[in-house]
Design a protein around this nucleic acid. Structure first.
Lengths: 342, 342
DNA sequence: TTATAAAGAACAATCGATTGCATTAAAATA
DNA sequence: TATTTTAATGCAATCGATTGTTCTTTATAA
C-alpha cells in the first residue's frame, strides 16, 4: 500500500500513446488539445486515480501558491480569527496557508521567517512578537523577493504592505466615552511599549485626556500590565492609592479588564458606579461577565480577509495599479454595562 | 528587487570552481567533503545570502516535511488549541503545518483532502465535518500512501491512527455527578448523531442513567441542540413541560450550556438549586458566568501534541515497532457552581 | 619505488510538471 | 490539385537539489 507509485502524467501518456506535454495541457486546460483527446485524458486520469504532484509543478513554476503566516500564538482569539478570515479568502484563490507560531519568542520568529523563505512561499503575513527587537529578519523577506504583509503588531520602520487597526482612534473614543460618562480620574494599563499597538493606544489615551482638558497623572499609568495577573496586581495598587482612579482603561486586552473586574469585585468596589472598566478585543466572555464589559472590537476576521485581498490585488497588479500600502480597519467601541453610569 | 535571482548551489559552485554536488553535500553535511572546502562553501553561502530552495529538494525527496490539517473551523477554541499543540511538536521536528478549514461543509472537506494529497504532505490530520456522509475521500488519503490521523470527530469505519477523547466516559462522570448532587430528571441536549463524539456522549448519558437505575425519558432528550440558539429554544421547551427537568446536560458545547443558563435566568429559575447545568469543552467563559458552569475539559492542547508525537513515532518505526493505533486522551470533569447544590 | 586504499571531488541521472519550439496532420484557400 | 493556414501533438529543456557512480588525487602500505 505504502509503496505503490503515484500515477504521473507520464503514466497516463504511456497508456494513451500520447506525449506527457499533451496530458499536461489537457489537465491544465491551457492552449490547444482536441476535445476528443482531452476527454480521453481526463477520463483515464480519473480512472487511474491521478493526483497532480504539486511539488513538481511548484518547482517548475517557482511558486507554490502558499502564504506563510507567523503569529505569536495560534490559539489566541484575535489571531485565530485573523487566520480564519485569511483562510477563507486564500482558499477561494486556490492558495494554501502555512502557519507558524513564534510563541512570543524573537528567536523563534527569526527561525520561522527563514523556514518560510526556504519554502518559497509567495507571501509572508506576520504579526511580530512582544520581544520584537530588530527588523533585520523582516527586511530579509523583502530581499528574497517575497511579498510581505504586516498586520496589527508591525515593525514601523519597514516599508511594506500593512493592515492595521487604528488603535489610537479607538482609544480616543474609549476615553472620550468614559469622560462623557462622568469619570474624572482615568487610569491606563499599558502593554509593552516596543509594540506599536500598545504605543498607539497610550497615545490615544493621552490625546483624549488632552482634548478634554484633563491633566495627565503619571501615577495612574501602569506599565506592562498585559496579563490578567499583572493587571490584577496593578489594579490593587491603583485602588489603594490615596486618590484612586474612578475608571480603568485596560488597553492591553479583555483579560486584563477581567483582572480589574475581579479585584474590584473582591474589594467591594461597585462597577460601573465607583469604577468604570474598559477592555480591548471584544472577547466572547465580555458579554457574559456581570456587569458586561465595555470593550473594542477589532473586526479580526475582516482583518484576515483584508490581508488576503490586499495580497491578491497587489499580486495581480504587479505595481501597475497603485494599491494602498496601508489599510486601516476601523475598530469599534462596544459600550456595555461596565462603563454605563446613567 | 523583485527580479533578482535567488542564489542556487550552482551559483556557489561556479564561484568556487566546484561542482554543485559538493556544495549540496557540504550544506547538508552528509558524507565526504573536506573540512577546508566545507568551510569555504558555508562561508560563501552565507555571503551570497543563500537560502536552500525547498521546492527543489521536496521534489527530489518526494516529501515536503509537512503535515496537513483539516478542521471544521480554525477559530473554534478546541481546534485552535489542538493546532497550537500540534504546531509546537511539529516545529521541533522541522515540520510545517498546512491548515485548511472545511467550514462544516462536506464538499469543502473533500476539496481540502485533494489539495493536501496534491501537495504530497507527509500526513493528514483531520476532524470531520458535521455534514459527514461518506468516507471515500478519507480512504483515498490512504490509497495515496499518505499517513492519516483522525482526531475527535472521526470516521469510525476507516482503520487509521486515531486520537480521541473518551466522550462516553466523561459523560458518565458528568451524569453520575449530577445524580450525586440529587438531580432526578436529567435532560440531554444532543448534537448531530452522525458524528461519533455526539453519539458517544449520548451513550454515556444513557449508560449512566442505567447504572444508577434511572428511567430513560425520551421527552428529556433533544436532538440537534448544538448551537447557543438551538439550545436556548430546546431549553424553553423543556422547562415548559408539565414535568420539567431539574438538570440539563448540554453535551454539545459550553455555548449550549450558556444558552440554557440564559433561558433559566430569564425564566427566574435558579441555578443550581432548581436547575443543574453541565456543559462541554471548558471554554474560558465558563469560569466567569454566574454561576460558573460545570463542564468537561478536553485537554485540547495535549491532544494536538499527542497527535504530532504519534505521527513521529509511527513514521520512525515504519511498522517495525508496534505503535498503538488509537490513543485516548482522558477528558476531565470540572465541577463548578452550576451543579453544586450542597 | 610501486601498488593499494581511501578520501575528495566531478559527472550525470533523477524527481514530475511545464512550456517554447518543431513537426505533422488536417482544413481552408487559391 | 497545389498551397497556405491552422490546429494538434511531439520533442526537449528547464526548475534546483539530491545521490549513486566514476574519476582524481593524495596518503599509506608493501
Amino acid at each position: 500500500m505504502k509503496n505503490q507509485k503515484r500515477t504521473t502524467i507520464y503514466d497516463i501518456a504511456r497508456k494513451l500513446n500520447l506525449n506527457a506535454s499533451s496530458v499536461s495541457r489537457a489537465l491544465s486546460n491551457t492552449s490547444k488539445v482536441s476535445e476528443a483527446t482531452k476527454k480521453l485524458i481526463l477520463d483515464t486520469a480519473k480512472e487511474m486515480n491521478y493526483q497532480p504532484n504539486s511539488l513538481a509543478s511548484n518547482l517548475r513554476r517557482g511558486s507554490n501558491r502558499t502564504i506563510g503566516v507567523i503569529v505569536p500564538r495560534i490559539n489566541q482569539n484575535f489571531f485565530a480569527n485573523v487566520i480564519a478570515g485569511l483562510e477563507e479568502i486564500t482558499y477561494e484563490h486556490g492558495y494554501n496557508l502555512v502557519i507558524c507560531q513564534s510563541n512570543e519568542s524573537y528567536e523563534r520568529e527569526m527561525e520561522c521567517v527563514n523556514t518560510l523563505i526556504n519554502q518559497q512561499v509567495n507571501c509572508i503575513v506576520i504579526s511580530v512578537t512582544a520581544e520584537f527587537q530588530d527588523d533585520e529578519h523582516i527586511r530579509n523577506i523583502l530581499k528574497h523577493g517575497i511579498q510581505l504583509i504586516q498586520f496589527d503588531r508591525v515593525a514601523d520602520n519597514v516599508d511594506t504592505l500593512k493592515v492595521l487597526n487604528d488603535n489610537r482612534q479607538s482609544s480616543i473614543e474609549a476615553i472620550s466615552h468614559l469622560i462623557e460618562q462622568g469619570y474624572k480620574r482615568i487610569a491606563l494599563l499599558e502593554g509593552p511599549q516596543n509594540l506599536n499597538i500598545f504605543r498607539q493606544r497610550k497615545e490615544g489615551y493621552l490625546e483624549a485626556l488632552k482634548m478634554h482638558g484633563f491633566d495627565i497623572v503619571p501615577e495612574l499609568m501602569r506599565e506592562n500590565a498585559w496579563t490578567q495577573e499583572l493587571s490584577a496586581a496593578a489594579t490593587r495598587e491603583l485602588l489603594s492609592l490615596p486618590n484612586p482612579p474612578d475608571a480603568i482603561f485596560a488597553s492591553t486586552s479583555d483579560f486584563s479588564a477581567l483582572g480589574v473586574l475581579e479585584v474590584a469585585t473582591k474589594m467591594g468596589i461597585s462597577v460601573p458606579d465607583q469604577l468604570g472598566i474598559c477592555g480591548y478585543s471584544n472577547e466572547a466572555f465580555t458579554e457574559i461577565t456581570s456587569p458586561s464589559i465595555t470593550t473594542i472590537d477589532q473586526h479580526s476576521v475582516d482583518m484576515g480577509k483584508a490581508i488576503a485581498k490586499l495580497y491578491f490585488k497587489e499580486a495581480r497588479s504587479e505595481a501597475e495599479v497603485s494599491v494602498p500600502r496601508i489599510i486601516n480597519i476601523q475598530p469599534q467601541l462596544i459600550i456595555r454595562d461596565s462603563t454605563l453610569r446613567n
